[in-house]
């Protein structure tokens, strides 16, 4: 089957920023799928070369992104407020909510100098990418989100945090965020 390509012709000066990006939704969809395959293969190759070290590399990359994202919001000591604000920044790509079992009263649990909260990630571009490329969940790419979330929380609350994966599913993933009070 021959693929029809419409060539766009116009004038362009590199010093001018075009007001429109050009292309329609199908072009973006195609680009997204190429990018998903690209990122998936990269994660897979990284794991092949570095083994378990791949998780640490991707985690650091995610953490750096998280710290950058966290700078966009106001600093707070209130975990629930921080998560609400981060929810807006991480937005629709990483749509999450706090989650608790029905027999638990509040979302947060205090354990000594630690506070624990369960987060349910419903929409996640990492999961989309893994499914597009046929890779299993809980692999290095999941550590990107792990680092992203921890970095963002650390930036907003100025504390140390960690995220553990409790369960992964095709429609949602449950993670436990633990923050340690008493500074970094």
């Amino acid at each position: 089957m021959e693929i029809e390509r419409e060539e766009i012709k116009g004038d362009f000066k590199p010093e001018l920023i075009p007001s429109e990006t050009g292309g329609d939704i199908e072009d973006y969809e195609e680009a997204l799928h190429v990018l998903m395959k690209f990122v998936g293969s990269m994660a897979s190759a990284l794991e092949q070369v570095s083994g378990r070290g791949a998780n640490a590399i991707v985690y650091q990359a995610g953490k750096r992104m998280g710290h950058e994202a966290g700078k966009l919001t106001e600093k707070t000591d209130n975990l629930e407020k921080a998560l609400d604000e981060l929810g807006e920044i991480l937005g629709i790509d990483f749509y999450f909510e706090m989650w608790k079992p029905s027999d638990q009263e509040g979302y947060t649990i205090e354990k000594g100098d630690e506070t624990v909260v369960k987060l349910l990630f419903m929409d996640c571009v990492v999961r989309q990418t893994l499914r597009r490329t046929g890779l299993p969940q809980k692999g290095p790419l999941c550590y990107l989100l792990y680092g992203y979330m921890v970095g963002a929380v650390e930036e907003v609350m100025d504390i140390k945090g960690k995220l553990d994966i409790d369960h992964v599913g095709p429609n949602a993933c449950l993670k436990t965020l633990t923050i340690k009070w008493g500074g970094k």
Partner: peptide, 23 residues
């Protein structure tokens, strides 16, 4: 929590979840 792991593992597609956030 509507993770739908049960859907993926069920060999006979016997489960249905209503009123959930579909990713």
């Amino acid at each position: 929590m509507a993770c739908l792991s049960c859907h993926e593992i069920c060999p006979s597609q016997a489960l249905e979840h209503d009123n959930i956030h579909v990713a």
